[in-house]
Amino acid sequence: MENKLMIKLVVGTEAMFFLALIMAYVYFSLLPGFSPQQADHLDIRSTAIFSAFLFSSSFTFWRAEMNFKQGKMTRLKGWLLLTLVLGLVFLFGQGNEYARLLRENVSISSSLFGTSFFTLTGFHGLHVFAGLVVISIITALTFMGDYDRSTSSVFGTVGIYWHFVDIVWLFVFLIVYILPHFHKITG
C-alpha cells in the first residue's frame, strides 16, 4: 500500500516537472520562426513507429502484472522480457533520431527548436532509461525466484511509473510531432 502511494506521489511530482518542460516548449513554439523549421526536421513516420513500441510496452507490462497476480511465473517472465525489448527499441529509435538530427546540424545549441526539443525528449528518454533499469532489476529478481510468493507490490508500483512514462510520451508526441504537422497542412 505505502509503496503504491509513494509511487503515485512520485508520478505526480514528475508530472509537474514535465508540465514545466512542456510549457516551456509550447511557449517557445509560439515565438515566430519556430514551427516551420521544426516540421522540416522531424520524421513523424519513423517516430510514430518507435512510439508504438513504447505504447505496446505499457500493454505488455500490464500483462506481466496480471500474470504475476495469478501466479503464472513463466508467462510473467516472458512479458517482462518483451517489455524490456520494446522499451529498448524505443530508446534505439530515439537514439537514431538524435543521430540524424545531429547530422543535419540540429543540436541543443543550434536553435531554439533544438534547445527545447532535445531537452523535452531527452528528459523523457532519461525516464524511459531509468524505467528500463528498474524493470531489468525486477526481471532479474524474478528469474532468481524472489517473487514466487505473490504478495509483493513491486509490479504494481513499477507499473504505475511505467504507464506514466508512456502517457508523458503520448503528450510529447502529440505536441512535438503531430500538432505542428496539422499547422503545416492548414497554414
Binding site: 505526480g12 545549441s109 528528459f123
Partner: peptide, 24 residues
C-alpha cells in the same frame, strides 16, 4: 510536490544553457 518540479526544471534548463549552450 507541486512546486519544486518547476524549480528543478528551470535549474536543469539553466545548466543546459550554461554548459551546453542551449538557448532557453
Amino acid at each position: 510536490l507541486a512546486a519544486f518540479p518547476s524549480l528543478n526544471a528551470a535549474l536543469a534548463m539553466l545548466l543546459l544553457d550554461r554548459q551546453l549552450h542551449a538557448h532557453f
